[in-house]
Structures are given as structure tokens and as C-alpha cells.
Design a protein around this nucleic acid. Sequence first.
DNA 1: AGCGTGACGTAGG
DNA 2: TCCTACGCCACGC
Length: 107
Amino acid sequence: MDEFDKEPTKEQKIWQVVAAIPQGKVASYGQVAAMAGLGRQARFVGRALGKLPAGHSIPWHRVIRSNGQIAFPEGTETCQLQTEKLRLEGVDVYKGRVKMKDFQWQP
DNA sequence: AGCGTGACGTAGG
DNA sequence: TCCTACGCCACGC
């Protein structure tokens, strides 16, 4: 079992945190980084989400910028997908942004 | 080993 | 509220 219990990678820590975000709530990249014990590596969080393996069940769409904006340019497919996923969970997305004050996850 | 990069963040105008 | 500039820092080439 030693070979099984390797230290989780930073990506895995991030995914773990993201997986803990409840439906209908959102968190910022910086928030996720801090909660994963990674300090200010907000950018690394975005990268980690880009490395998500196929068939995952990570709610990546609940992670947005600290100012409430979707991290993708409007018009891109990824942005639209994220927007719809959030709306399906009851998160109000207007002009590619979310009111953090109302939907930010507070553990 | 050095350098550009980026699903970011904060400050200032 | 929108836009610009600068800071951050591990990763990958």
C-alpha cells in the first residue's frame, strides 16, 4: 500500500477543493489556491483545471475570477458552457459575471 | 538553468 | 464601471 499512498499532487489538492464547492455557489481561483494550501498560485489553479482528466466529476464551472467574471472571453464555447452550468444550479450570470456577494462560497 | 507563459489578483485612473 | 499597468510564481520549453 505504500505505493498507493503517495502524496497528492498540487493538481489533486486543487481538484479536491473544487469538488467541495457546493452546488449554487462559486469560488475564486485565489480562494481555491489558498484553501488548497498553495498560497497565491491562483494562476496555477486555472492550469490545473485545464489538466482535468477525462471522465472527471469536478465542478470546474464553479470557479471564477475574484471580481466575479467568467475566466473565458464571452462568445467562446467554454464560456457559454460554464454560464449554462451555473444557471442550471441557480447561479445568476449576467454579462459574463456573477455577483460574488450573493453566490461566493463561504465555508 | 534561463526565460516566456498564464482558466489570476490588486491598485490606480 | 471599464481599462491599463504591474505583481505573482510554478510550470514547461
